[in-house]
Design a protein around this nucleic acid. Structure first.
Lengths: 237, 237
DNA sequence: TATCTAATCGACTGACTAGTCGGTTATGAA
DNA sequence: TTCATAACCGACTAGTCAGTCGATTAGATA
């Protein structure tokens, strides 16, 4: 039994929806198919996912999938867009003026980390996209619309921090976002290989809790340190 | 034309090795097949790679692949092990006593970053493994043997730093390694999606240079800061 | 030189896979 | 009630895929 078969057999459960279906409901059909497709693409990748399996598990015929989504690629893109939207949606707007730039930045990091820990699906799709050189993502407008507000929010936090004299000047929001997302995402998206190679359960919530704390300290520490006096300096006075 | 076909057509070049082959050479055959397989698994993933294509491009028949590697999974594991070895091999041993803990830690980060920027293949395989919950990696002893020395090296740097009063005490090497690898790997492995979503070419060497500098500052800053002092304290709940 | 091992391959197979097609029937509107 | 629309599906196809098999032959060895 190959690893692939091992994994696939998990999905070999009876159909989630029993036929004969009572009523016709196009919206329900589309949503059900999309949900099942999401699970399959996330765990099997684009090439690894099987349209037949998605159909069987959803309780609808394969013809329905092609009726609503046209082809496998469109179905995948629909999943990609749905997951992207879902990823950013729960992020609440911080009251920057109230909590101040340092706490706002900390919240930014902690919320992102909590979001991917609760549902790592976005990380799998991101990995798939990068393996594929973002071929499908490029064709979608949804993810592109999601990020500018996030960058704007980050820029406002940075500006406020500089103005109040708590952050160093000259930090590029894009550059900071990349660093942030690194510490937020990587430990979760690579939890399996890290656990195997490091011999520690890096997926445990205790480990990830500590990782988030360390990440926050690194990011806040960087932003609050003057670049000239440098990090090499032993202790801040 | 689907994105898959678009990508696959790149590999549709004439065979790298011309037949009739002059001599028989088992070692050459295995190495050639492994090299071509590496390229295919890295860019297409396990499910996406095609044994027929690997055979055609290598200039050997498919029967040779099965003769030497048994099946697709074994071939993939062989690639995985080869890439892992190649990833750690070029890392030179630092003279900790000579350069001191701060520079040693900086070098640790910079060398890791340089290594994956030069050849991101390891990152693709890591992504594939994590999508697969490290199913294949678990069956291999090679990657497991590679990491302990790396952690030992990191621990020595940390200990020296604490002893010399430049690093804070109590940093877990495993925890630090996860943070390090985050900032080292993520920007490179996610360069495609980051570029698309952020609207900036995050794969450019200028951007990555700045990212590495920021990463070094964050890591060194964290290790050289006392956890009790500094502005970080104010944000703790 | 005779012999044996293993390097090598063309052609095959059975299972799988994305996508299609022709038809049936529930449902809402007229 | 009639009827048009679309929700829905079983069965099919053409091509693809991992893996096999029987045979041929280069080259090492005795």
């Amino acid at each position: 039994m190959t690893a692939d078969q091992r994994k696939r057999s998990i999905a070999a459960k009876p159909p989630a929806v029993q036929r004969p279906r009572k009523t016709r409901d196009a919206a329900l059909a589309q949503a059900t198919i999309l949900g099942v497709a999401r699970a399959h693409f996330v765990s099997q990748g684009f090439a690894g996912a099987r349209v037949d399996e998605i159909a069987a598990e959803s309780g609808y015929s394969k013809a329905m999938i092609y009726h609503y989504y046209g082809n496998k690629e469109n179905l995948y893109v629909a999943v990609l867009e749905e997951v992207y939207k879902h990823f950013v949606a729960p992020r609440r707007v911080l009251n920057l003026a109230e909590v101040g730039p340092v706490r706002a930045l900390e919240a930014f990091v902690r919320e992102g980390a909590a979001s991917v820990r609760k549902d790592p699906a976005i990380l799998n799709l991101l990995a798939i996209e990068n393996l594929n050189e973002a071929a499908y993502l490029r064709g979608s407008t949804v993810p592109r619309a999601i990020y500018p507000p996030l960058l704007t929010q980050l820029k406002e936090i940075l500006d406020a921090g500089v103005q109040q004299g708590v952050f160093r000047a000259g930090i590029d929001p894009v550059q900071l976002y990349v660093a942030l997302s690194s510490v937020i995402f990587h430990a979760v998206s690579n939890r399996f290989t890290l656990s195997v190679t490091l011999g520690t359960d890096t997926a445990s919530s205790a480990f990830l809790d500590r990782h988030v704390d360390m990440s926050v300290a690194m990011v806040i520490g960087y932003c609050t340190t003057s670049p000239r006096t440098g990090p090499v300096r032993t202790v801040r006075k």
